[in-house]
Design a protein around this nucleic acid. Sequence first.
DNA 1: TCTAAAAACAGGAATGGTTACTGATCGTCG
DNA 2: CGACGATCAGTAACCATTCCTGTTTTTAGA
Lengths: 140, 140
Amino acid sequence: MLESGIREKLRRSGYTLTSQRRAVLEALSEAEGHPSAEDVYLIVKRKNPRVALGTVYQALSVLEEVGVIDSKHWSESPTRYDLNVEPHLDIRCVRCGKVSEIPGVALGGVEERISANTPYRVTRATMVVEGLCPECTEDE
Amino acid sequence: MLESGIREKLRRSGYTLTSQRRAVLEALSEAEGHPSAEDVYLIVKRKNPRVALGTVYQALSVLEEVGVIDSKHWSESPTRYDLNVEPHLDIRCVRCGKVSEIPGVALGGVEERISANTPYRVTRATMVVEGLCPECTEDE
DNA sequence: TCTAAAAACAGGAATGGTTACTGATCGTCG
DNA sequence: CGACGATCAGTAACCATTCCTGTTTTTAGA
């Protein structure tokens, strides 16, 4: 099942799958959309009221490091986390904060072109997309 | 000269070109690279020690709103400002924080494809690129 | 030119997401 | 069983940014 793969990825980096980290993963699959650390914290707390917010942040950071989850950051709002680690675009509503996937848009080798045009060693290239969701567009 | 164009852009949105805002623009052209609000503040303060950091933030926000400057945000670091408002990519070194332009890479209509694939009204789509600059790559 | 209203400002307090720190707990391996 | 390292809870600290209050500057009208 999923869990053994996750456990293995953690082990390869010297981490273990603790109950808190498992709870964070469960919260991520329960939560709709793209929850923030605080969202995850609130869900985890329902089952285990003693978890600390810092623990959730640390778990999220470890899980991202080993490639089990993904994070995206829009300015003026907390970082969002996602179980979907496949490359894809998300858009965030600047009014209500909702985040949705944008299907079917690939970046078409932009990373390679970037690497070819900078002396930096590129480690990350993401698109940050903002807009107004249909609901918020209506009452403009 | 430049100034009259800037003054006009401000006026159209109901703002005026105050001495503080002019000082912020001068600081942006003096500063090398892509300064943060704090960087701008320190430069402005050299000539006018009474400016407040909040004023610099407000000036930057107004200047961006009217399209005279551009801002880019990388997570885990303050927002950077830029006099270059032409669409272009910048990369930030995750170790030393230096920001450099990436010449010659266009996004090739990605915005249009995004708009076509989401019910949101897209207001902004930027690339956030990170990596290691040549100096920092050496002592890895 | 004088005056009232609006805009902008200085200074500093407050905010909010995130990280750092400390001492307690857990899990593992001998 | 015993000890060591990893993890955790709880809380304090951090830092970029915004907000607030009273003051100064600018603008527009008379």
